[in-house]
Structure formats: structure tokens, C-alpha cells
């Protein structure tokens, strides 16, 4: 008989851990469990399949800290196979305690890759999320709203970054995987999916001015740009819509610089030069 669970896609580590322990204590090998994930993010544990019964005398599973950290980050990944992979690592690590330190092992290599992707996703969220001002909130505090589309389940991971940085303002971050809200005292994280809000902010115009002006048309390296800021992020960034126009004008701007004839220096330059020369002369 194959045991199994049908889990909502946003199942977190703690929830999975309860089920994984149940399987482990029942002595179930990884190949005898089917971890099914429903793409629909239904409320938790509506109808789990019947789980196995733990055995009375079963030994408790143990893990080294590095392995535990690895599993936690695997569980934040949105890969459908993560529950299965995590359980297999938990199972194997009982006989091979150093397993997590062997990056060339296929399971560990895959887990590390997932950890890396989760980390990158969190990093990109910290980088590319944009707050837009919404007017005044409670007690005169300024209020901001942001929309971001993370690939993985990282709201818990990134929340402290935002609360510790944007401490003196009220803000809400909405995502398809849930939301984070901060009021200066408390941080509330929800797993209810949100819709994209319709928000604008006038300061975005100044930011666009900056973005266009800091760009050097004499150096075009769009590959470097896209590898660090892949297109999937562009639709939510206020500045990236300008890129096509910036590239289209770059060639002409560089040619204009090359074609420019030397001009007469401005008047104040001549005055400065005279003063400078006199100063040099006056040094004995």
C-alpha cells in the first residue's frame, strides 16, 4: 500500500515536519510515500489522505543543524517535488549523518540548488520591490504599498529585512503568495493570496529621470543587465519601461558626442585660468 498526503502548495516547514515525523515514526521508506501537492492554495489540510500510524518503539529522527537548515530552505521552494526530496534527505541522513556536507551527492546537489534559488528570490525581492506612497496612516505616519511576485514562499524570510529597514513608516506588501503588513510595532504575515493593486506615486517620475540620466549610452551591456535583472521582474518596476527608448537613442547620442566640434570655453573658465596662472607666477 502507498501512503500519501495531498498538501496545499503553500504548506510550510512546520506543517510538513509534523507529517514527515508521522511517516518516519511509522518506518515508511521514501519510496512508499506519495507527497501530492495541489497547485490550488486551498485552506490547509482540508482532506489529507490517510496518514500512516506511528510505531510504538520507533526511534526519533535526528538531523545535524546544517541539514535542518537545508530542509527548511527546500520547503520554501515552489518545486512540486520538494516534499519528496526533503523526506528522502531526512531518511538517508539517519544512516549518513554527514550527508548534507556532500554537495556532489545528487539529492544534496538538487537541494542546494533549490536553496540557492530561494536565496536569490529573497534577495531579488529585497532589491526590486518598490513602495508607493498612499497618504497618511495612523498617527501621522506615512503609508506605503508594494506589490511583488516572488517565485517561492519567502515572506517569512524577507519580513525582518523590511521591518528593520522601513521602521518609521507604515506599509503593506502584497503578493500572490500572501502579504506582510507593518505598523511600526507589529508585523503581520498572511498566506492569503492577493491581487495586484493599482497604485501610482509621483516620485517614480524623479526616479525615472535618475535612471535615464545615470545610464551611459557609450557602454551597452544588455546581457549583463538582463542576467542580474531578468525580464520577469520588469513589469512591476517603474523604470524598466524606459529601457527600449534608452537603447534606441544611445547610438545617436554617442555619435553626437563624437561629431561635436571643440567649443570656446565659457567665460568663467578664462577668468579662472588667469587667476591660476597669476598664482603660479607669484610663487617665488
Amino acid at each position: 500500500m502507498v501512503y500519501g498526503f495531498t498538501l496545499p502548495d503553500n504548506t510550510n516547514f512546520q506543517e510538513w515536519r509534523v507529517l514527515a515525523r508521522q511517516c518516519f515514526l511509522a518506518g515508511l521508506a521514501p519510496e512508499n510515500i506519495e507527497w501530492r501537492s495541489t497547485k490550488a492554495e486551498v485552506s490547509l489540510f482540508d482532506a489529507p489522505l490517510k496518514g500512516p500510524e506511528p510505531k510504538e518503539d520507533a526511534a526519533q529522527p535526528v538531523l545535524r543543524n546544517t541539514c535542518l537548515a537545508l530542509l527548511k530552505s527546500v520547503l520554501r521552494h515552489s518545486d512540486q517535488g520538494r516534499f519528496d526530496l526533503a523526506y528522502r534527505i531526512l531518511w538517508r541522513a539517519q544512516a549518513e549523518p554527514a550527508l548534507a556536507s556532500i554537495p556532489v551527492d545528487p539529492d544534496i546537489a538538487r537541494a542546494l540548488r533549490m536553496m540557492h534559488q530561494v536565496r536569490r528570490d529573497a534577495h531579488k525581492m529585497e532589491a526590486f520591490l518598490r513602495f508607493r506612497e498612499q497618504g497618511e496612516g495612523s498617527g501621522g505616519r506615512r503609508q506605503f504599498l508594494a506589490w511583488f511576485e516572488p517565485d517561492h514562499y519567502i515572506l517569512q524570510t524577507v519580513a525582518p529585512f523590511f521591518t528593520r529597514r522601513f521602521t518609521d513608516m507604515d506599509w503593506v506588501i502584497l503578493t500572490p503568495k500572501g502579504s506582510i503588513a507593518w505598523n511600526g510595532q507589529q508585523c503581520a504575515i498572511s498566506r492569503n493570496p492577493c491581487d495586484k493593486p493599482d497604485v501610482t506615486d509621483d516620485v517614480d517620475l524623479l526616479w525615472q529621470t535618475y535612471y535615464v540620466s545615470i545610464f551611459n549610452p557609450a557602454r551597452i551591456k544588455t546581457k549583463a543587465m538582463r542576467s542580474e535583472m531578468p525580464r520577469k521582474y520588469w513589469k512591476n518596476l517603474p523604470e524598466t519601461q524606459l529601457i527600449p527608448q534608452m537603447l534606441a537613442q544611445a547610438g545617436a547620442r554617442v555619435e553626437a558626442m563624437a561629431a561635436q566640434q571643440p567649443q570656446e570655453p565659457p567665460l568663467f573658465h578664462k577668468k579662472l585660468q588667469d587667476r591660476y596662472k597669476n598664482k603660479i607666477k607669484s610663487i617665488p
Binding site: R164, Y211, F215, K223, M225, M229, M246
Partner: peptide, 18 residues
């Protein structure tokens, strides 16, 4: 309770000059 933090130095955007 103010504004701001520092850490690893984040790149918030990239321009087409890379």
C-alpha cells in the same frame, strides 16, 4: 525606530550599460 539599514549592499536596479 528611524529609517534605514545596511548589510550586503543591494543592487536595486540595472541600467542597459550593465
Amino acid at each position: 525606530k528611524g529609517l534605514g539599514s545596511t548589510g550586503n549592499g543591494i543592487c536595486h536596479a540595472y541600467t542597459p550599460d550593465g
